[in-house]
């Protein structure tokens, strides 16, 4: 059972990781940081991270990846500035080649990373003893799942549909 003291300790360790990440992230971005025209929050490199992780997170092939990227972007744009700032740190950390290699444990650039390496990264963070890495995993999990299952394109495969008796009456 985790005690308050342990919690504070992991929290502090987590902050140290993030500080290091911030330090590493600034000088050597893994990918160009130019913002794509139609995205509000996600930069080119962030979008690639989502594109690479989504099929592994969702356990599905043939996904409409650009829709998922857009869905993640819209979801983040609707969050509080304070939360957006944390997500910016997360994407900067993952987008940086040192962060990707040493904290995420993914050796190839995101676009080339193999599915089993990506799954190993997700599992390490999902099960990490560090609260901060677990929360990083949970953020990616929530964003990608919300972006996909909020999209009606995902519903047929689930056998889900909205109640037909009312849909025709809506404006």
């Amino acid at each position: 059972m985790i005690t308050r003291r342990q919690l504070i300790k992991t929290g502090m360790a987590g902050s140290v990781v993030l500080l290091a990440a911030g330090f590493l992230a600034s000088p050597q971005p893994d990918l160009p940081a130019a913002s794509q025209g139609h995205l509000v929050f996600l930069q080119t490199g962030d979008a690639q991270i989502i594109r690479s992780l989504a099929p592994v997170m969702l356990g599905m092939a043939g996904l409409a990846l650009e829709d998922i990227v857009r869905g993640v972007d819209v979801a983040i744009a609707n969050l509080l500035p304070a939360v957006q700032q944390e997500l910016r740190q997360l994407f900067d950390l993952l987008g940086n080649r040192w962060g990707r290699r040493w904290l995420a444990g993914v050796h190839s650039p995101w676009a080339q990373a193999a599915a089993h390496d990506l799954a190993a990264f997700l599992q390490r963070w999902q099960q990490s003893p560090l609260l901060l890495l677990r929360s990083g995993y949970q953020a990616l999990h929530a964003l990608i799942n919300a972006a996909w299952f909020g999209n009606p394109a995902s519903w047929t495969a689930l056998g889900y549909q909205q109640p037909q008796q009312i849909m025709g009456l809506l404006p």
């Binding site: 969702l58 799954a119 999902q126 299952f149 889900y160």
Partner: peptide, 24 residues
């Protein structure tokens, strides 16, 4: 509902996909 369930289910990959595909 799909979005809230997708976000709330634990796990990722084939396991959670299998569960989501049994949504009904």
């Amino acid at each position: 509902h799909p979005l809230l369930m997708g976000v709330t289910l634990s796990g990722f990959g084939a396991g959670s996909a299998g569960l989501m595909q049994q949504l009904p």
